[in-house]
Amino acid sequence: MLTAEYLKQIVEYDPETGLFTRDGEIAGCLNADGYWRICIDGVDHLAHRLAVLFMTGQWPRFGVSHRNDDRADNRWSNLRSASPVQTARNRRASNKLGIKGVRMTPRGAFRASIYVNKRHLNLGTFTTAEAASEAYANAAVKYFGEFARAA
């Protein structure tokens, strides 16, 4: 298993830019999902996980999330530890409206709901998508804190 000591011998990490370099050149490349990956001894590693190892000396216990949702932005200030549940809370909308937590009722109104502690909570029915979206956004901040995503 890759250790922090070995990692620091073969690459450098700039926490201000989030870039890893090897022999003065930027290390790694973007993968199809938009994450930086770096090959070390024939094994591909995600750069955001390597940044945690480099900075803390330990592999991340759970996942690593990008605060600004830019998968290629590995600045130390943009990275945070995230459990699988926290990562799920930070997902984008995946419905037809493109508005997280909002769906259209058969009568043309907009219903807002949020999933908290394995339960769907109804936030109300609204005449506009914007009002329903605002209700979801407020609830997301209340229940999810820094991992809230309204869109």
Rank of each mutant, 00 (worst) to 15 (best):
P84S: 05
Y136P: 10
S81Q: 10
H120P: 00
M104W: 00
D33F: 02
M55H: 04
D33N: 14
R92I: 10
V43S: 07
D41C: 05
G98F: 06
A132S: 11
G57E: 12
G34Q: 10
S94V: 07
N31K: 13
W36D: 08
C39K: 14
L53W: 06
E16G: 02
Q58A: 06
D73H: 01
Y13I: 07
A150T: 13
K8P: 08
G101E: 08
V52G: 01
A51I: 04
R119N: 14
S94H: 13
G108P: 10
G145D: 15
P60T: 07
K142E: 15
N31H: 05
L19P: 03
R75H: 10
T128H: 13
L50K: 05
E130I: 13
S65A: 15
G145Q: 10
E5L: 05
A47P: 08
E16N: 13
N74M: 11
N117V: 07
A129I: 02
V52Y: 06
A27P: 10
F147G: 02
N31L: 01
F110R: 12
Y115G: 01
R49Y: 07
R49T: 06
R75V: 04
D14R: 09
F144G: 05
R119W: 05
R89I: 00
R61M: 14
G145P: 00
D69H: 14
A72P: 03
P84D: 00
G124R: 05
A47F: 06
N138V: 12
L53N: 09
G101H: 09
A150Q: 09
L53F: 06
R71E: 10
A151R: 14
